[in-house]
Computed example of a mutant assay.
Amino acid sequence: MNNISWRWIRAFLLVAEHGSFTAAAAATGQSKANLSQQITELERTLQVQLLHRTTRRLRLTSVGEGYFERAALAIAQLDAAAEWARQSTRELKGVIRMNAVGGLVGEELIAPLVFRFQQAHPGVEVELDFSSLRVDLLTSRYDLVMRMGELQDSSLVARRLHQVTTRYVASPDFLRRHGPVRQPSDLQGLPLIYGSVDHWLLKRGEQQQVVQARGGFKIVSGHAMRQAALSGLGITRLVNVYVEADIARGDLVDVLPDWSDTTPLSLVCPPHRYQLERVRALMDWLAQEFPDVYVRALHEGLASKRLR
């Protein structure tokens, strides 16, 4: 370490993460003076400036940004190594911080599986977060993240859970009033029920078409989007687990089946967290159980009925 204290590095990471000495001191119980002194010692030993300090704000230097990224990863690896060393028995115990997609997939399919895992392993506490933030797993607080879509970062440990298919659906009543939909261009001018993204990218083989939502309904909830479609308010786009049973019953119509696209669902984990037996066990459990749960949900559909 060339006489560099790990306490100095942790102080620097805390201040950088919280954005100020005041916030870092409040979060840790240390004094601002103590944190400042530790970072000064770190900069003096490294012979570089890591922080720009003014009376009003604090920001990382360009060197500080690079040092933060590398130091955060090193500290995370050390913490994981310490936890691994403390696992002296085969009993699973400790905290697992997991981030997952929300809605039906996360809250009604993933969450019950996590609860069953915790019941089987009382020493494990899973902190399950359904925020939609895209996090950098190598430096974030999460041990495990559920992601939808193709994975880009090959440095992460990944397990494929399942494939989901996007459906474009409307009620028979809506189609009787507005006419059939045979191609993406037919969606233009029709009321669309959409979520946080106000444009749809439709794919069929090498073909791609973008449809902009105008004059429709913005609803950031898959359950509510399905209800709106069942009520005849417009055309919506949802993954198949929301609407497959409705299509089979004839309550909804799959209007563009040739333009449906398939997306993978995966669990990803940073390598230094995958060393922990409890994290590996939860990944294995979800990968084993989730496909059957998803297929059963496809056939059974949602318990809620259409709004009257």
Rank of each mutant, 00 (worst) to 15 (best):
A74N: 00
G222H: 13
R273E: 07
E289V: 04
V243Y: 00
A120T: 00
Q152C: 05
P184R: 00
A245V: 01
E108W: 04
S266I: 14
Q227I: 08
L138I: 09
V157A: 03
L156A: 00
V164D: 00
G149K: 03
W200R: 02
A100T: 15
M225N: 12
E125Y: 06
L202E: 03
P112Y: 11
D246R: 14
L175I: 07
F12V: 08
S231E: 13
I9S: 01
D153F: 06
V253N: 03
A297Q: 15
S131A: 13
R214V: 13
V164I: 12
G215M: 11
S131E: 03
A72L: 14
C269Y: 03
A170I: 09
D246E: 15
A248M: 09
T54N: 09
A287Q: 12
A24S: 12
D186I: 02
Q275H: 04
L298K: 10
W84N: 04
L104N: 07
D198Y: 04
D251M: 10
R10Y: 02
M283A: 09
V293Y: 02
V293A: 15
L138D: 14
R59N: 06
A287Y: 00
A23L: 13
A228W: 01
Y194N: 04
R214I: 09
D284N: 11
G103F: 04
A248N: 05
L51E: 06
P172D: 07
I110F: 08
L233N: 07
A72W: 06
E150L: 10
M283K: 00
R182Y: 03
T139P: 09
L192A: 01
V145R: 09
A25E: 05
K305N: 11
Y168H: 14
G19H: 10
P180D: 08
S231Y: 01
I75L: 03
V293K: 08
T139V: 14
W200A: 05
L46K: 10
A74V: 08
L151T: 05
A11G: 15
T262R: 09
G149I: 06
T54M: 06
E43D: 14
G94H: 05
R237T: 01
I235D: 06
S31W: 01
R10G: 00
V279T: 06
P180Q: 03
D129R: 13
D79E: 15
L190E: 10
G66T: 10
G301F: 10
V197A: 13
A281Y: 02
V268E: 14
S266R: 14
L138Q: 15
S36V: 01
G66Q: 14
G215T: 12
R56H: 12
A248C: 00
V197Q: 15
A85T: 04
G64H: 06
I39S: 01
F130S: 04
I4S: 04
G19I: 06
V239E: 03
Y67M: 10
R280S: 05
R70A: 13
W6D: 12
Q49S: 13
R280G: 00
W84V: 08
Q38F: 01
Q30R: 15
A16L: 06
Q87V: 06
F217Y: 15
A297H: 13
T22Y: 05
S185W: 08
E289Q: 15
C269F: 02
L50T: 08
V15W: 01
R177V: 02
F21L: 14
L51N: 05
A170L: 07
A100R: 07
E83L: 15
